[in-house]
Each structure stands twice: as structure tokens, then as C-alpha cells.
Amino acid sequence: HAVVHAAGVLDDGVLDSMSVERVAGVLRPKVDGARHLHELTQDLDLSAFVLFSSLAGAIGGAGQGSYAAANAYLDALAQQRRAQGLAATSVAWGPWAEAGMAVDGALEDRLRRGGMAAMTPELAVKALQQALDLQETHLAVADLDWERFVPSYTAVRASRLLDEMPEARRVLEAATAGGTT
């Protein structure tokens, strides 16, 4: 038996424009749904408990404060479940092609320009199977064009998040050597 939680609602906006109702509308499907599934299944012997999170929770996203918080909760719930000896995998997904929340002409174009292409569902499902086979607790799966993503992600400030990623370090080192940072 397995549980897969893939709920999500987008309601983008800068924090000072968000009302309690708008934030709750984004948090409820992710947070309440995942918590209820955890509580209802914590005494069952599950082969998998999969939470569909988002890169927004791991690396942030412009105007996605409430969505980022909801996804960070899923990542933390996976850590808690593993600490309790329970099955748990939280995948911080990048955008999927053909379906999903980022299949919107303008949003998809903006993400691509920032170095984040939409993944084919077949590739995403293979990545999920690999994560389950390796019993990963939390991971990010995205199709990144490092040459575009790194400059976009670090345009305002440096990011320690990228320090341990060889692909990102190569781009950063090349930019430093070229005197562009």
C-alpha cells in the first residue's frame, strides 16, 4: 500500500498583498491534506508515502511565499516521518510539461527564460521511481539549464544553496573569472 499526496493551489502575490484567507487557501490543500494522510496512515505498513512538493519550498519563488511555506511543510513532514521510522519521500518538483500547475504560456515562458524547462512526465516518473528505490527522504527534481538558472537565481544576491552543486559552481567560477560578478 502507498499514499501519494499531489494537491496544490497557486495564488501568487507579494506577501504584503496576501490576506489570511488567500494564504489559508494555498496552505490548506497541501498542509492539512498531508497532515491528515499522515495521521490516518501512520499505523499502517506503507511501501511509500510520497509528497509532491515544489522547488518553491526549497529555493523560493518570486511572489510564492505562501506556496513556498506549504511545500516546505511537506518536506519537513517527510523528515518527521522518516525520523519515526515511517516511509516518506518528498519531491520538490520543477515544472512538468503537458500537465501541472506551470503549464501556462506566460509562466512556462518565464521559467524557461530563467533556466528551468518543463520536464516530460516520463522523465519525472522515472526520477520518482529512482527516488523510491533509493529510499530518499527529500530531493529536488528539475530540468535546469545551469547557464541560465545560476545567473538568474543569483542576480540579487549570492546563494549558499548552489555552493555544493558542481554544475552551478562551474557557472559561478566562469562568471568570476570573466569579471561578471
Rank of each mutant, 00 (worst) to 15 (best):
G65W: 02
A131P: 05
G178N: 11
T181F: 14
S159T: 05
A48D: 05
V3G: 06
W93Y: 02
G94W: 00
D75L: 02
L77S: 03
P151H: 10
R82F: 00
A158C: 03
E147K: 13
L111W: 06
E98Y: 02
E108Y: 09
L44I: 04
E136C: 12
L27G: 02
R160D: 14
L132N: 11
H138I: 09
H38D: 14
A76M: 09
L77E: 01
E98P: 03
A58V: 01
E122R: 15
G25K: 07
R170L: 15
R157C: 08
Y153Q: 13
A131T: 06
V125C: 13
L74W: 02
A118T: 09
S152N: 12
L55N: 01
A99Q: 12
L37S: 05
T176W: 09
D12Q: 05
V3P: 04
G61L: 03
V150I: 06
D16C: 01
A6M: 05
T154G: 01
L128M: 15
A58E: 11
S47R: 11
E164A: 14
G115F: 03
G100L: 07
R148W: 04
A174N: 07
G100D: 03
D32W: 10
A131K: 02
L44Q: 13
M18L: 14
A155H: 07
S90P: 11
M101S: 11
P95Y: 00
G13N: 04
D104R: 12
F49G: 08
Q130F: 01
G61N: 10
M165G: 01
L37N: 09
Q135A: 15
A72N: 08
E136M: 14
E147Y: 02
Y153R: 10
